[in-house]
């Protein structure tokens, strides 16, 4: 077992374990922190796959921005039930019920099973080329040439999402009531 594989195993375990805890954690804030950990694990996996730029983006966007936003939203929410996150029963009790336990479990397991089964029979030819040593540069070049239009569209999507989020959460003076 070489060192790379060992690192892969550990990172995978961290990722999946944290992901599992996201689902099972009692408090929503804890779940958010586990989510951050899971994202860090994925960033590590990116590094192993020679996607160093992406790993950095992963850390910045997911861990730095999205998770933080989730935690802020939870903590600053004026709604008691979101803040405490104690609205639901414990995970292990719920898993026994049909609607919250058995059926989702069966569906998720079946999904994973089928996908893995399909992967086994797929015949992808790995290209044994040494990875690009300078991914940041090639990503940047591709992004501003080949993928320029998607890039611009993405910026528009972000703008729209930002405006939408602001409008949605803006406190309206209740003129109707």
């Amino acid at each position: 077992m070489n060192l790379q594989l060992l690192a892969f195993m550990i990172l995978s375990l961290v990722t999946l374990g944290a992901a599992f805890k996201v689902i099972t954690a009692r408090f929503i804030t804890h779940a958010a922190l586990y989510l951050a950990l899971s994202f860090v694990g994925v960033a590590g996996l990116f590094l192993l796959l020679n996607a160093d730029f992406l790993a950095a983006v992963q850390l910045l966007v997911y861990v730095g921005a999205i998770t933080t936003m989730l935690i802020f939203a939870v903590m600053l929410s004026q709604v008691e039930e979101i803040r405490q996150g104690a609205a639901e029963e414990g995970f292990w009790r719920r898993i026994l019920s049909a609607r919250f336990g058995v059926i989702p479990l069966a569906v998720a397991a079946a999904l994973a099973g089928v996908i893995l089964y399909l992967y086994r029979f797929a015949n992808w030819k790995a290209v044994p080329v040494a990875p690009d040593p300078n991914t940041t540069r090639s990503i940047g070049q591709a992004m501003f040439t080949t993928y320029l239009i998607p890039f611009e569209v993405a910026s528009l999507v972000l703008l729209v999402a930002m405006i939408g989020a602001i409008v949605l959460t803006m406190k309206k003076e209740d003129r109707s009531r």
């Binding site: 639901e88 898993i95 989702p104």
Partner: peptide
């Protein structure tokens, strides 16, 4: 990871 995500999305009430 995908299956865990699906499971969580289906399971949670929050």
């Amino acid at each position: 990871l995908f299956a865990l995500g699906v499971y969580g999305a289906l399971l949670s009430t929050n």
